[in-house]
Simulated assay, not measured.
Amino acid sequence: MSIDSGQEELPRQVAGRPEMRESDLEYGRRTKEIIDNVLRDQFGDFFRSQEVLDGREAIPCIYKEGDPDSRVVLVLGDNASGKSYFRRLVEYTVQIGRLTELARIPDGKYPSDIFEVSPEERMEPGSFAALRYGDEAMHSTGDSSLQMVSRTIGWIRDAAQKKPTRDCIAYFDEPDMGSGLRVAKSIGLLIGSLGAERIPQLKSIFVTSHNPAVVRQLLKADSRPHYVFLGDSEGPRTIEDWLEMQKSEEVDPISPEELKKLSRQRFSDIQKVLDLRKERRKKTK
Rank of each mutant, 00 (worst) to 15 (best):
D167V: 08
G66R: 03
R157W: 06
K185C: 11
V117K: 04
F86I: 03
L262R: 15
G231P: 07
G28H: 00
L230T: 04
G188R: 02
G97D: 02
Y92H: 12
T100W: 00
Q246H: 04
I254C: 09
C61N: 06
L243A: 01
E26W: 14
L262E: 12
I270A: 01
S5W: 14
D158H: 13
A221P: 08
G6T: 03
W155F: 14
I191D: 03
S263T: 08
Q271M: 15
S186E: 10
E9C: 14
I96G: 04
I191L: 01
R266Q: 09
Q265H: 07
L194M: 08
L189M: 09
R280Q: 14
Y92T: 07
L259Q: 05
R157Y: 09
L102M: 14
F229W: 11
V273A: 01
S233T: 09
E9V: 12
G188S: 04
K203G: 05
Q246I: 01
R12K: 13
V72G: 04
F86E: 02
Q246D: 02
R104S: 15
E65I: 09
V94S: 04
E91F: 10
V38T: 06
Q95I: 09
A129K: 00
R182W: 05
G134Q: 01
A103Y: 05
G44S: 06
F115A: 06
S81H: 09
I105H: 06
K261I: 02
A160H: 07
A184I: 01
P106C: 13
A15P: 05
D113C: 12
A196R: 08
I35K: 04
Q201T: 15
P236W: 00
R71N: 13
M123A: 08
D241L: 08
H210Q: 08
L102N: 06
K203S: 13
P212H: 00
G6K: 03
L146I: 03
I153G: 01
H226K: 07
R166V: 13
L189F: 11
H226W: 04
K32N: 13
R30M: 08
T284D: 11
R98D: 11
N79Y: 11
Q95D: 12
R71G: 12
R122N: 00
R29K: 13
G178V: 00
G66H: 03
R166A: 14
